[in-house]
Design a protein around this nucleic acid. Structure first.
Lengths: 205, 205
DNA sequence: TGTATTAGAGTACATTTGTTTTAATGAAAA
DNA sequence: TTTTCATTAAAACAAATGTACTCTAATACA
């Protein structure tokens, strides 16, 4: 990841790029070419087009041809970070090299209506979901889309919302903790409302 | 989940609002009215305008009149997902409500040169870092910025890159696993190269 | 100096797009 | 049923906007 320095750009390109970023940060949408023209003190759109083309060729921006205000600053699209190989969390010897792959943690956000929950307690500790973790959930529309072994958040009468393994056996629903200190909950299908299915776990140190 | 705080909206408005959010989350710019029209299965822009007007009056969105694709979703950080309260992962009763807060998982990416590693093995299992997890790391420039108890990735001679707890006692470096099956590694400061410090853990199901 | 290259001005055009208007449709209320 | 209101379709319009083209001025280079 070179970035940071815009040394590859001419002054004019750099100035435009910088202005675009500021504009988009403020207004949350792309400026139009004529706005850029004005901001750069120009009286014709042609120079802007030229600079945009160069910025695009150098990988700084992109846009949808013919569509108004669809500029994207590539730096901000790439929410991914380089994956530098794997680390031993055991006795194995592993290398530390740029795998040339990227981890995009925002792809789960592209699903519809994803929401987050704060985990409270240790009942899922054996599934490595700890107290204080954030879990990203996908809404459940029909309970038939849940498979045995999925981790779900469910509204259980008298228990509130709880995060558990889902199992279905012989018409009964079993909600099981990942902690032997907690007993499974047995319910009928109509006694429980499923809210979401686990997509990802996020823990910020 | 009856989309919580959108009770003020009609189904059509709610559907549109939801679609706009998803679109902007994916493409990072506002859709045009005709795109919304298509997405809603309509053949005329008028209904969309009507719904947009209502959404604006109710404070959900705003835009610059006459300007193309200048829609803004008010009150919403697009990188974030709504935090819908907390779940019991224990015996506690917790509510399931829109807390009106947002989880922004991209903020750690704003640090410089963040990189990711794939976790291999179970030596950090008691810290709830499991085999296959991705860890997001911040580069370590000088080893003095590391504090006792931090989780670091370190290059240890003969062991490759490993993820461990860092401790420093009496001029010696101790790298300790979060798993009693592994013994601590004792090293001199010049025998180890620290690569990164743990920022976050990411597990996608 | 002369030529080639580049950047900018000016203009024009086609498409995209927001907006308005009117008529048709359908659902709800009287 | 009839009336009333909201929704949608359809069409048209005007503004915004991306793009292409030519011409001129500035710059770089041999």
């Amino acid at each position: 990841m070179k970035s940071t320095s815009n040394y590859d750009l001419t002054d004019a390109q750099n100035e435009l790029y910088s202005w675009i970023r500021d504009y988009m940060r403020e207004f949350r949408h792309s400026p139009s070419i004529r706005q850029m023209m004005q901001a750069m003190g120009l009286k014709s759109p042609a120079p802007i087009q030229s600079r945009l083309k160069h910025l695009q060729e150098k990988g700084f921006i992109s846009w949808q041809e013919g569509k108004a205000r669809t500029l994207q600053v590539v730096d901000e699209i790439l929410e991914g970070v380089p994956i530098m190989g794997s680390v031993a969390a055991g006795g194995l010897i592993e290398t530390f090299n740029d795998t040339n792959e990227n981890l995009d943690i925002t792809d789960v956000l592209k699903k519809k209506n994803v929401f987050a929950l704060t985990v409270n307690g240790d009942s899922m500790i054996d599934a490595c979901i700890a107290d204080g973790d954030m879990v990203l959930m996908e809404p459940i529309n029909d309970s038939f889309s849940i498979r045995n072994g999925d981790i779900v958040s469910a509204l259980v009468p008298g228990m509130g919302t709880t995060l558990k393994y889902f199992f279905k056996r012989g018409g009964k629903i079993f909600l099981e903790a990942a902690n032997s200190n907690y007993d499974p909950i047995e319910l009928n299908l109509n006694e429980v409302v499923f809210q979401g299915k686990l997509l990802a776990v996020w823990r910020k140190i």
